[in-house]
Design a protein around this nucleic acid. Sequence first.
DNA 1: GTAGTTGCAAAGGGTTTGCGAGTCG
DNA 2: CGACTCGCAAACCCTTTGCAACTAC
Lengths: 163, 163
Amino acid sequence: MVAAGDAMESRIGRMCIERGLKMTGQRRVIARVLSEAADHPDVEELYRRAAILDSRISVATVYRTVRLLEEKGILERRDFGGGRARYEATEEGDHYHLIDVDTGKVVEFEDAEHTALMHRIAERLGFDLVSHRLELFARRKRVPVADMAAPQAAADSKNGPRR
Amino acid sequence: MVAAGDAMESRIGRMCIERGLKMTGQRRVIARVLSEAADHPDVEELYRRAAILDSRISVATVYRTVRLLEEKGILERRDFGGGRARYEATEEGDHYHLIDVDTGKVVEFEDAEHTALMHRIAERLGFDLVSHRLELFARRKRVPVADMAAPQAAADSKNGPRR
DNA sequence: GTAGTTGCAAAGGGTTTGCGAGTCG
DNA sequence: CGACTCGCAAACCCTTTGCAACTAC
């Protein structure tokens, strides 16, 4: 069981406390929105969702919070093209994104082979890999005739085709 | 030998003509700057270099030209982080970039294995790969004792560490 | 001659910030 | 209480655009 004080704290909210962040009402709400997000929302979207739970939140605070959490390693900033940064909670192990160029939906995937290859390449060039970025832009394969709708991994909703 | 009319035209200048672009003085200068660039300049840097050759050029024109050339497939836009787009002439075959996080220098490399892997991954997820993006952020390996300075691939000059 | 191009300055879109007021610990 | 956080609006940065003058073809 969780300690009494953190009982109603969201997963990310608890991470904030662990790292000694002051938990204001706004932060608690944003942390909760982030904890419940299964997609990769941008700041505007986070603001929209947060405002539903507490209308006293301003976009400036969302920007500040998201930046703070990124510095603390709780969040990761993504750039899928389109000009706005998008965020997701830091997860165990590397994973990458495939963006459907027609719908803007994002499919996550892992690939140990790729990760290993990146280290080998950096090594070959005389560097130590610090981080790397990989995005695939692709179009759903046309299914010949029969069955379509083979369920995919996690996928974003909205966010139309890129810019 | 080149046709008389194109004699003093830069490589990219000639590509512009091939695609039926109207060659103004400004475009000729920008095309030349791009043709001679061995790095990945951003618009501000292109403007600076172009202004040396012809001070009647405005940034707006650089933005417009660079955009036009990208649409024509002559240039490719890159995002190495730092908020500004950077450009390089389209080249044969895929190549990627490793950014030295300490100096901001960019090292180019190719890797057929990686390119093939990207197609396989998209395939596996039920997509046809349209394009992909890969950047490595790394730090130069500390050389134990003896010989350093193992020559690298192309590298940018300025452009300090990322934002 | 005419469609396309340019410079200038203003407008846009995303993100940051200065400031006084308010809040967590 | 003291340091930190917030909302607001102005400021920033990069990029795009409206407009009138100009130019390549």
